[in-house]
Design a protein around this nucleic acid. Structure first.
Length: 365
DNA sequence: AACACGCACAACCGCAGCTAC
DNA sequence: TGTAGCTGCGGTTGTGCGTGT
């Protein structure tokens, strides 16, 4: 038994809005407001439209101070940065761009920005066509989730563009990785044999290899095991638990729904231990990659410094100020930022110079 | 000129969360 | 506490237009 439809589908007009319909809706809302009930509104004003459709039309097109098209370079940067940080949370991204709607940004991203950025990346990375271990590049790309791959690629790209001398271009600045990540990278590299352009650019060489250091690590948070293959074992078995027996997680906590949304999944980390490395492992690695992207290497703290953020000083160079972190560290604002994205008193746009601060915050979660 | 194709944008759909009862 | 209704969100689809063949 499904839920009741929000309106009588047979008695509702669909498709593009006519100027008359627009005028009717706009005039009424400007005069009376929505009345707090979108479902009832179309009947009130004699529109044969679904309430949801009216709401969408108003929010995305009719309301005042809407900007269409003409995205600036700064807006591009903000969108990219936020997409990499939080993924396709368009309403939140829209909250940072006054006058922009989530739908607009979503469309802009899907049709232009993504192609512009990933296309540029692809062009540079795939210029030297190569295959490895019989695995085609396309297969490799497909083995990683679109979102994870996109975000990882963009992450790398933006880092490079932002500061060619920092982080990904400077091994000395690379943070020590969680052993799981390290193992993952090794696995990918062995798969890749160092020649796959995607992974070559997506994954830095392990800094441990460079520095010969091994740091103490914490066990990532996990809810339960998910082993699809008997050959898979939990690396977690070899990772010490905290005193309480609860796996260590990153220091610090937050009730901010945004934070929880940054790491929505908590899948057990597992890899294959046999040498028959293949797509099954890729699947597991994909999860781990996604996990890392979502958790920002959550759970790993260098032994000498238990302050998570301090382990990632490399990010500090990008932005000295922490003040503007407030925009999403404020619990109460998360929801309202989303729902009020179209208000004239929309949340101020992020300063471009602070756009990378979320990485640092992410590591601090 | 006609057709195919790709792109950009608008709109729809289904789901999840919230709230009132 | 459970349920129904409403809202908001994100993914997907539809449509119109421009461009290439």
């Amino acid at each position: 038994m499904g839920r009741a439809p929000c309106c009588d589908k047979n008695n509702v007009k669909k498709g593009p809005w006519s100027p008359e319909e627009d005028a009717t809706l706009k005039t009424y809302i400007e005069k009376n407001g929505t009345g707090g009930n979108w479902i009832a509104l179309p009947q009130k004003i004699g529109l044969k439209r679904c309430g949801k459709s009216c709401r969408l039309r108003w929010l995305n097109y009719l309301r005042p101070n809407i900007k269409h098209g003409g995205f600036t370079e700064e807006e591009d940067n903000i969108i990219c940065s936020l997409y990499i940080s939080i993924g396709s949370r368009w309403s939140i991204i829209a909250a940072q761009l006054p006058g922009r709607t989530d739908n607009d940004i979503k469309n802009y991203w899907n049709t232009r920005l993504k192609k512009k950025l990933l296309g540029r990346r692809k062009q540079s990375n795939f210029s030297s066509k190569d295959t490895n271990n019989g695995i085609e590049e396309n297969s490799y790309s497909n083995a990683l989730s679109t979102s994870a791959l996109e975000r990882l690629q963009l992450h790398m790209q933006l880092q490079s563009l932002q500061n060619p001398f920092s982080f990904y271009n400077n091994p000395a600045l690379w943070p020590k990785l969680h052993p799981i990540q390290e193992k993952m990278i090794h696995s990918l590299q062995s798969l890749n044999d160092g020649s796959n352009p995607v992974m070559q650019n997506a994954l830095p060489n392990s800094p441990h290899d460079e520095q010969g250091q091994k740091g103490e690590f914490y066990k990532p948070q996990h809810d339960g095991a998910k082993i699809n293959n008997p050959d898979q074992v939990h690396l977690l078995e070899n990772i010490p638990l905290s005193n309480s027996g609860v796996p260590f997680v990153a220091s610090g906590s937050s009730t901010n729904p945004m934070h929880s949304s940054l790491a929505p999944r908590s899948e057990a980390i597992h890899v294959q231990t046999n040498n028959n490395v293949g797509f099954q492992q890729l699947g597991a690695l994909q999860n781990e990659l996604d996990e890392i992207l979502n958790n920002r290497t959550m759970g790993y703290v260098p032994q000498e410094d238990h302050d998570m953020a301090s382990g990632f000083d490399c990010f500090r160079e990008m932005n000295d100020s922490k003040d503007s972190l407030i925009w999403w560290s404020n619990d109460s604002d998360t929801k309202s930022a989303s729902s009020n994205s179209w208000e004239s008193s929309a949340t101020p746009a992020l300063l471009t110079q602070g756009m990378f601060q979320d990485y640092e915050l992410g590591y601090s979660l």
